[in-house]
Design a protein around this nucleic acid. Structure first.
Lengths: 189, 189
DNA sequence: TTTGACATGTAAGAGGTTACATGATTCT
DNA sequence: AGAATCATGTAACCTCTTACATGTCAAA
């Protein structure tokens, strides 16, 4: 059970509904944790049953009612315990890299296309995260915000996401270039 | 079923036993896929039953016998199909980043320690991958190898791993620095 | 003589993905 | 009129992790 800590960490930003949490997992949280909406609804239900989060019903007009969740004291204690515990090694799974690993044994064309698409997607995420960072630090400079801000966790993880995406984009473009070049040389003979 | 493609891609390098494959998943393959030895033994059994890999017994003296696996024609066809298919988005899961996200709500000390340990581990992996890259390109320069080598997939994925680790190390050290600085400022008041 | 490398698995339980299910409102 | 957003789940299936199980040989 590890998703729970990602959920608790995300809920430190304030109250979220399952739906809003799912959005957060598509943007900021995506920099370090992947989860589908169904998982989040299920996890929130479990966390509530165990008293780590508390939900309250919010009646809305013109749209469905929702339940907003916040981290309880027991939830904070669990996060505290988790933070001091030995971390599991990070892990990555990337189909596209599997394809690059196999590129000597398969048709390179589609892989090149996918690398270029991925670079474009990374670029889009760079813009998105740039905007998010700007919003998070408000009027302050980054240096100032990191020294004196009172909620810097999400800022730091977004910085990680940003540099990850930039790096990823560069690698995708370089790799696509290398493979294209080899296609050209191969065709010449 | 996605692990299978990572296994097939790894087996393009030649024949491997389950044990050797597990090692490869700890080094080069770790740059894009995470899997435990038990999973690999199970997956190899499934792949063999489906005819995507073929195993042969190798009797050894002075150590246990082993089974070496290679990718069959059907396995190559499956990789080819996979390479042209739309890739799933890559995903990350990282406990340490979860802790950083939550750092405003928990004791920062242990998190700082873990960031520094992670930076050291990244450094070690950078050395490891540097050596691996050197070995893969043989006597050639990188530029030359990428232009004319006949097995560049693993090289390209190692390059990704290398830049990922370097980036990760830098972020860990910077983040640890920011958090330490805040601890100091807090203590002063 | 004990640690580490070599070598291969099984079984139970936890966790994650895919498909299904519903329905109102707002924007294009 | 159709797509996107808001809003929440269930059920079946697949995958992954953790714990267990075994045994040899080489090196420190």
């Amino acid at each position: 059970m590890a998703l729970r800590h990602a959920v608790l960490a995300a809920l430190l930003d304030g109250e979220y509904s399952g739906y809003q949490l799912a959005k957060a997992f598509d943007i900021g949280v995506a920099n370090f944790w992947h989860a589908l909406p169904q998982q989040l609804y299920a996890e929130l239900a479990r966390l509530e049953k165990e008293g780590l989060v508390a939900g309250r019903q919010v009646i809305q007009e013109g749209r469905p009612n929702k339940r907003l969740f916040r981290v309880t004291e027991a939830g904070h204690a669990e996060l505290e315990r988790f933070a001091a515990d030995v971390p599991k090694p990070s892990f990555i799974r990337d189909d596209l890299l599997v394809k690059v690993q196999a590129v000597d044994g398969v048709t390179a064309g589609p892989v090149i296309g996918q690398l270029e698409e991925r670079a474009t997607a990374a670029e889009a995420r760079i813009e998105l995260l740039g905007g998010l960072l700007h919003k998070l630090r408000g009027g302050a400079t980054e240096e100032e915000f990191l020294r004196t801000g009172d909620r810097i966790g999400p800022y730091l993880t977004c910085l990680r996401g940003l540099s990850l995406e930039a790096d990823h984009r560069d690698w995708c473009l370089r790799t696509a270039g290398v493979l294209r070049e080899r296609q050209r040389n191969h065709a010449e003979r």
